[in-house]
Design a binder for these strands. Structure first.
Lengths: 257, 257
DNA sequence: CGGCAAGTTGAGCCAGGTCAACTCCGGTGG
DNA sequence: CCACCGGAGTTGACCTGGCTCAACTTGCCG
């Protein structure tokens, strides 16, 4: 009896994109994994919880952006990490850590995999293992990069870094110099550890200096990539743009040396 | 021909601590892995580079603290992550990412493992695989937690969180209420995204409020754990301690409600 | 005991947070 | 078709936590 690729998989980026996990599977394994999986979708702002993460704790994002949110006692909210299409998030044993909630930013579709079958695939298929291992490693290193951005960069530098992060992560590029930001301003602020007001001001400033152009609130066109790169890397030269308080300057405060 | 546990392994925490990677290995595998490994030590401030990370890219920390440092163009330095005794750090393919340097904080000893033999063990030994996978997952989640701390917490809250992080990570506890901080103040500041001066002021403040007592610059005694916990969690109540600028208060600024 | 690095203390300042008002836009129903 | 509403984003004015710079103290090593 010959089996065929399940329809849901055929049009799923984890399968048709040859670098992703499911693309590495044999037909048999794919069918088996599919049988032990559960697809769901989440609307903006909804939390992923309940049966899905408990019974299918290896979560492959097939569409949209899933965020890991932490909330402090007094209500301050941060987005600790973003998970985008093609990534696999392993939430096994997440009960024992009282870590944050998984909240959808925009429309999210995902495919929960059974831990047992996932484990079996990891052992039997070296290519799939390499992809999965590389995936979690890049999550770790990305989180570390992000932590170091938050630690020492100024608001404008963080935003510049994030534009590049988006560019690197997005699978489908619309146009060479355009980057899609699949987040609302307030979520962006929560991820970068700043206020929506500040995000707005920084974008305005970057536009005034003709470094980027914001077309659609979620599409950023990079006009001056080298300058943006310098800002992201914390070059002192970027400081000449760092004029959030232009008003003060106009009011007559002396320009710095 | 009967083999014995290699001496170096016998007294290594990765082996004698039953939760760690090498403890899960059969004697044969242990001997084989040892044969394909390379131990080194690094003095404070030295970078791990050259042959070791290239030829033995799976690095098990057996003693001390290794840091991943990022440096911005204008010299600002951050510690993106800390790797402590018992942890395994996988730096395969780290060439293709222009990510930071691995710098020893204090005396570090480590055991570099060959990628091939490590991979073989991962496949053949489920218990070892679970440990290694769990290890990298906790690195990822810890980095995310840290990122979210850096994003929204105040200096005192970050420091309080870090005291708990140290307590949770340290293998050997000296005394119930004492935590060892295996970092110098300036490294601590680099990890928490603040200035050494600020770290100093915060410690002074915590001592004045009898929440902790600093005995040895690297030993912190927790006097009031619930209060420290509240501060770490961002409870508003913590604000009553948040008086870095006591001078201003003394000078007559009105107390807040 | 002398010299250097690490840590501490003080004074002043500024980047970005806070608060409040306003604009923009998509959806809804009369 | 337009008036209304509510949430997201923007703008302005002001304030403050923590950075900066500089001077000082402490601890460590030869």
């Amino acid at each position: 009896m010959t089996q065929d690729i399940p329809d849901e998989c055929r049009f799923c980026c984890l399968h048709y994109n040859s670098e992703n996990f499911c693309a590495k599977l044999s037909l048999n394994d794919l069918v088996e994994l599919k049988a032990a999986s559960k697809t769901t979708s989440l609307k903006h702002g909804r939390e992923l919880r309940g049966e899905v993460p408990r019974r299918w704790p290896v979560i492959a994002i097939t569409k949209g952006v899933l965020s890991l949110q932490h909330i402090l006692h007094d209500g301050r909210l941060t987005i600790a990490a973003l998970f985008m299409r093609g990534e696999i998030l392993d939430v096994r044993n997440s009960a024992d850590r009282k870590r944050g909630k998984l909240i959808a930013l925009g429309e999210v579709e995902l495919c929960g995999l059974s831990a047992d079958v996932f484990e079996y695939v990891i052992v039997s298929n070296p290519a799939a293992r390499t992809v999965a291992w590389g995936n979690i490693r890049s999550q770790a290193f990305r989180a570390m990069d992000h932590a170091s951005d938050l630690a020492k960069k100024h608001a404008m530098e963080k935003l510049a870094s994030f534009i590049f992060e988006c560019r690197n992560r997005q699978s489908l590029r619309i146009q060479k110099d355009k980057v899609e930001m699949p987040l609302r301003r307030s979520d962006l602020a929560a991820y970068l550890g700043m206020q929506p007001e500040t995000v707005s001001r920084i974008f305005k400033n970057l536009e005034k200096n003709e470094i980027v152009k914001v077309t659609d609130l979620s599409i950023i066109q990079i006009l001056n990539a080298p300058a943006l790169r310098r800002i992201a890397n914390g070059d002192r030269m970027g400081h000449k743009y760092n004029l959030l308080h232009q008003a003060n300057v106009k009011k007559g405060k002396a320009a710095r040396t």
